[in-house]
Computed example of a mutant assay.
Amino acid sequence: MDEFNKGPENSEGNNKIRNPIINKVTRRTRSITDKDGFYVILFICICIVTTTAVWVSKNNFDKANNLQSLDYLQFAEGYYDDIENLEEEEESKDVTLIEIDEKESEETKSEETDKELTQDTEDKGAETPEEQKTKVTSAQSNSASEELVVTTMGQPTVGNLSMDYADSTLVYSKTLDQWTTHYGIDIKANEGAAVKVVLDGVIKSIERDTDYGILITVDHGNGLETKYGCLSTDAMVTVGQEVKKGDAISGIGKGAGIELADGPHLHFEVIKDGKNVNPKNYLPKFK
């Protein structure tokens, strides 16, 4: 029993003996752990620094490559621009030379033409001052003659305008019941009223026309003629007869041919150099 009771005391003594050993081991373990932690932290820092340095170096290298590529592209663009400018300058020079050659060629041709004309004039003989004066006088005479015709032509009969001149437009024809051209004017007048010559002239023709019935043409010279249609008689004048302005050559008929439905009237035309013209440009104004 005594030995049994001493057991706990011996156990406490053993614990006291063991505690210093355990404490020593613990201190050593902590010391080792503290040293290992330091090295681990140091290793991690070295890794971070190394990684950062590598990344920075790579980034700088990429930037340098990009700058070199950009410089190369700019250099290439400038090079090709210079080539294009040189080509344009060469083309401009070529065009200028071509224009100069063409201009010189035209001037040469013009000089040759002038020489040929001068030679022809010398061969044929130049016009004398008298010949030139005659031409000018003739032109002035023709112009004055036309102006005189316009201002001195008389009315072919007394009446009112019933159908106008129409070469580029159309007028309505009662007889044909359609729109048509009309190369003269119609003057509505009383049946049997006198039809007179508007200018001095010669009776050129007397005919029975299918369109305008009895038709008399008077030649006034200088390419001017007048025609009188839808007349009542052809017995008052003869072909070749000279007539004076205001002479009666026939009377107003009832209408004929393509103007039969228009009633009594005079169909009057003016022909200049073979072409119909508007008679109102030659006649006095209608009231």
Rank of each mutant, 00 (worst) to 15 (best):
T33M: 14
T151C: 03
T181N: 05
E90Y: 12
D62G: 13
D164K: 01
S173A: 04
I32K: 15
M236D: 00
D2W: 15
G263E: 00
M236T: 03
K58L: 15
S110K: 14
D177L: 10
L266R: 02
I98E: 05
V239W: 00
P279F: 03
Q68F: 05
F268S: 02
V195W: 01
Y72L: 15
Q132Y: 07
K275L: 13
N5L: 14
N19F: 08
G223D: 01
T108R: 14
H267Y: 08
E90H: 13
H182T: 05
T137F: 02
R18C: 07
S69C: 08
G7Y: 10
S232C: 06
L97Y: 04
H220A: 01
M153S: 12
I252A: 04
D167F: 05
A189F: 04
N23G: 10
G37V: 09
Y228W: 13
N66F: 07
D120W: 07
D101H: 13
Y228R: 06
N190R: 12
I216H: 02
K133D: 01
E191H: 01
Y80V: 12
E130L: 06
K35N: 14
K24H: 08
K174A: 07
I187S: 01
S105K: 09
K35E: 12
G257Y: 02
E112K: 14
S250Q: 02
A194N: 05
K196R: 09
A261H: 06
L73Y: 01
S173T: 04
L148D: 12
N278R: 12
D262S: 09
S232D: 05
L86P: 02
E122V: 09
S57A: 15
Y183M: 00
M1I: 09
T113L: 12
G255L: 02
F43D: 13
E104N: 14
S145A: 06
E225P: 00
V40T: 11
I100M: 00
Y72P: 01
D219C: 08
G223F: 00
T226V: 11
Q119W: 07
V56K: 13
W179G: 04
V95P: 04
L86R: 06
D120Q: 13
Y172Q: 06
A53Y: 14
S11A: 13
D273E: 04
D123T: 14
A261I: 05
V237M: 09
E102M: 05
E127Q: 08
N59P: 12
L170N: 10
D101L: 11
T238N: 10
E269W: 02
K103I: 10
A144L: 03
I32T: 14
V158Y: 07
K6L: 14
F38G: 14
V237K: 13
D211A: 10
K227Q: 07
D234A: 13
E147L: 03
C230D: 06
D34S: 15
D273I: 02
S250F: 02
K135C: 01
D167V: 00
D164R: 03
S92P: 05
E88W: 06
D219H: 08
L199H: 13
D167I: 09
C47T: 05
K16P: 00
A53P: 03
E90D: 13
N281T: 10
T217G: 00
D164A: 01
C230P: 00
K285T: 15
S105P: 00
P8R: 04
T175L: 01
L260W: 00
Q241C: 08
Y228L: 13
T51S: 12
T157A: 07
L224H: 03
T52H: 04
K93A: 11
S232Y: 01
V277N: 11
V243F: 03
T29Y: 15
Q68P: 03
